[in-house]
Simulated assay, not measured.
Amino acid sequence: MNWLLVIAGAMVGAPLRYLTDRIVQARHDTVFPWGTFTVNVTGCFVLGLLTGAVVAGAASSQTQLLLGTGLCGALTTYSTFSYETLRLTEDGARFFAAANVAASVVTGLGAAYVGVTLAEVLWA
């Protein structure tokens, strides 16, 4: 029955990704993919926080399946990140493509670290 938890989380994560992407991107008049960047960094933070909570015993493995695998798995998107970076390169926006890669990796890792650290503060 664990797969039902993953499905339930994904049912929320996928539309949340789409709606967040559209709302964020509509507010920025640039070729930089702010919507995808936002959902990916947010997902990294939530997954870091959740992982820290599970390690501290404050969240169950079922919660990890629901929110980590299901919600965050559907919320974040490596394929769209890759496609948008390739599109930027093909359109001659190489600076934005490089900025997308660098900012996504650095900020995503930073967000996961902040999430884990916050979980340690809250539940250690």
Rank of each mutant, 00 (worst) to 15 (best):
122 L>C: 02
80 T>E: 12
29 D>N: 14
26 A>L: 12
117 T>S: 15
52 G>Q: 02
114 V>A: 14
120 E>K: 07
90 E>Y: 05
46 V>E: 09
53 A>C: 07
104 S>W: 04
34 W>R: 07
95 F>V: 13
18 Y>N: 15
118 L>E: 14
73 G>D: 00
49 L>G: 01
77 T>I: 00
60 S>T: 14
28 H>V: 10
62 Q>N: 11
69 T>M: 03
85 T>H: 04
110 G>M: 10
69 T>V: 15
69 T>Q: 14
27 R>G: 12
102 A>N: 03
68 G>T: 04
36 T>V: 14
59 A>P: 01
81 F>E: 08
110 G>H: 05
41 V>L: 07
63 T>S: 10
11 M>Y: 03
109 L>M: 02
110 G>A: 03
32 F>D: 05
91 D>N: 11
13 G>Q: 06
26 A>Y: 10
20 T>S: 12
2 N>H: 05
31 V>G: 06
22 R>Q: 14
27 R>N: 07
57 G>H: 02
21 D>R: 01
57 G>I: 12
77 T>E: 03
66 L>T: 01
31 V>N: 11
124 A>F: 07
23 I>N: 03
25 Q>W: 13
40 N>H: 05
116 V>F: 00
24 V>P: 00
108 G>C: 08
41 V>H: 09
69 T>N: 07
114 V>F: 04
93 A>E: 08
20 T>V: 14
17 R>I: 02
118 L>Y: 05
62 Q>P: 00
50 L>D: 09
102 A>Q: 00
40 N>Q: 09
6 V>Y: 06
56 A>C: 06
5 L>N: 04
43 G>M: 13
82 S>M: 13
95 F>H: 04
61 S>Q: 10
93 A>M: 02
27 R>A: 15
107 T>S: 09
68 G>Y: 02
1 M>L: 03
37 F>N: 06
99 A>I: 09
74 A>M: 06
71 L>F: 15
65 L>E: 15
65 L>M: 14
12 V>W: 09
78 Y>I: 15
88 L>F: 13
65 L>W: 11
90 E>F: 07
29 D>Y: 05
84 E>R: 09
54 V>R: 08
31 V>W: 01
28 H>S: 05
17 R>K: 06
12 V>Y: 02
104 S>I: 11
96 F>K: 13
88 L>R: 02
38 T>S: 15
35 G>Y: 01
118 L>C: 10
48 G>C: 05
40 N>S: 08
5 L>I: 08
40 N>R: 04
113 Y>F: 14
102 A>F: 06
111 A>I: 06
14 A>F: 09
96 F>M: 15
98 A>I: 13
44 C>F: 03
105 V>E: 06
44 C>H: 02
106 V>S: 06
12 V>I: 11
60 S>F: 03
107 T>N: 04
122 L>K: 05
5 L>A: 10
85 T>V: 10
3 W>S: 11
122 L>G: 11
35 G>S: 02
57 G>P: 02
71 L>N: 11
65 L>F: 14
109 L>C: 03
78 Y>Q: 07
76 T>D: 13
56 A>T: 01
76 T>Y: 08
90 E>Q: 12
121 V>P: 00
119 A>S: 13
82 S>P: 04
7 I>R: 06
121 V>Q: 11
